[in-house]
Simulated assay, not measured.
Amino acid sequence: MSNTQRFKRPRALIAGSALALAASVAALPQAASAAPEGEECVLQELPMPKGLYFSVVTGMSAEGSVIAYRAYPAGMSSDERYPYLYEDGEATAVPIPGADQILTDVNEDGLAVGASWVDGVQRPYAFEDGELRELASNDGGAATGVNDDGVIVGIAGQGPTVPVKWVPGQEKPVELPLPKGATEGGARAIDGDGTIVGSYDDGAGTSVPYVWHPDGSGEELRLPEGVDPATVVAYYPSAVAGEWAVGYLLTQDSENAVRWNLEDGTAEVLELNYAEGINEDGTVAGTVDPIAAVADEGGGVTYLPGLVDPAENWFGDMAADVSEDGELLAGQVFAGEDEYGYHVLKAVTWDCD
């Protein structure tokens, strides 16, 4: 399960250099926008609310029955965002107050979680059975993940932040333990068995990926072999499923998705430049800029169709999540520019059965 939250992808690495982008497009296979022979992935746009024009997927349930996405006002005319849940062919608006509203995750029962900024404070929310509620926190926070048991994870506080979980039946959040020397931290995603991934600040300004096991123990997530710690700019996990977790590694030389095997403690750099979703088979949803792509357990890459020719895609498409059976993916694709020359993204699904 993925969760797109307040930690944003450094898109400047993609759009900031025309030469670098041209080189990456030239290096892609001629038929990179299509799935491999014998497999066809059909793209479908999610409903676009009237008066809005731009949308991105922000979460999906494990089986893919519920998708969270948000739409933006034309011309980015305000900080207000419009979260929606898509289920059984219908989109339902989720009326979160404030600004920069987002649903970061949703479970199979339709329990969706997220956050928004209200009066200058980020606040965590949950939406279930048509009712929105603010989650208890210490001076605000954000809900970033939820599993099918209804356990919610995220952060509490505005700085320093602490990683927390909200357990059904308990109003107050439970603080997750941080290792000695940590100054703050946050939880990003939770699996069905209660495994949680996130990160903490080591006191020297370095963000360290971390996993909390169901028994309450925790440990750092290692760097892949051959990566020099001195070159790391950003490093964090985004999602967890079964024995697998996936995240992002930005060094002074490259940006790549990283996949961890939580059982054997290994880490590997993937061909994907970025990824946010993973399932229990180790299938990872992400992008090989500028094309949305999926990496299987062995690292093989499937490219997904977009709305524009890859050679004209200067912003990039991304698969944000993948269902447990691997047949449904959700994300967003570049759809061109608006009248002001700004990029336009469309929230979509790919049906790969």
Rank of each mutant, 00 (worst) to 15 (best):
K8W: 09
A15S: 10
G16C: 08
A18F: 12
L19S: 14
A22I: 08
A23D: 09
A27N: 09
P29L: 07
Q30M: 13
A31V: 12
A32I: 15
P36K: 04
E45A: 15
Y53A: 15
F54H: 14
V57P: 05
G59W: 04
M60K: 04
S61K: 05
S61D: 06
A62G: 14
I67P: 05
P73T: 07
A74W: 11
A74Q: 15
R81N: 14
P83L: 00
L85R: 00
L85W: 01
A91Q: 03
V94C: 05
I96L: 15
G98M: 04
I102R: 10
V106A: 07
N107E: 03
E108M: 07
D109V: 11
D109L: 11
G110Y: 05
L111V: 14
V118D: 10
D119V: 13
G120D: 08
Q122G: 13
A126N: 06
E128V: 14
G130F: 04
L132M: 09
A136G: 13
A136E: 14
S137C: 07
D139P: 09
D139G: 12
A143D: 03
A143T: 06
G145H: 02
G145Q: 02
N147R: 00
D149S: 10
A156D: 10
T161E: 15
Q170G: 05
K172I: 09
P173G: 04
E175V: 13
P177K: 03
P179N: 03
K180E: 15
A182K: 04
T183I: 11
I190S: 00
G192A: 10
G198C: 01
Y200H: 12
D202M: 04
G203N: 03
V208S: 08
P209A: 05
Y210M: 13
V211D: 00
H213K: 10
D215N: 02
G216Y: 00
S217K: 04
R222H: 12
D228Q: 06
P229S: 06
Y235P: 08
S238T: 15
A239M: 06
V240Y: 00
V240M: 00
A241F: 04
G242D: 01
W244N: 07
A245G: 02
V246P: 01
L250F: 13
T251E: 07
D253Y: 13
S254F: 14
S254W: 09
E255D: 14
N261Q: 04
N261K: 01
G265N: 02
E268D: 12
V269P: 06
N279K: 02
A285Q: 01
T287I: 09
V288R: 12
V288C: 09
A295D: 01
G299E: 01
P305D: 03
V308G: 08
A311F: 13
E312G: 12
E312Q: 14
N313L: 07
N313I: 06
N313R: 03
G316R: 02
G316V: 03
D317N: 08
D321E: 14
E324Q: 15
E324I: 11
G326H: 07
E327R: 14
V333A: 07
A335L: 03
E339L: 13
L345T: 12
L345H: 13
L345R: 12
K346V: 13
V348I: 05
T349P: 03
D351W: 10
C352Y: 08
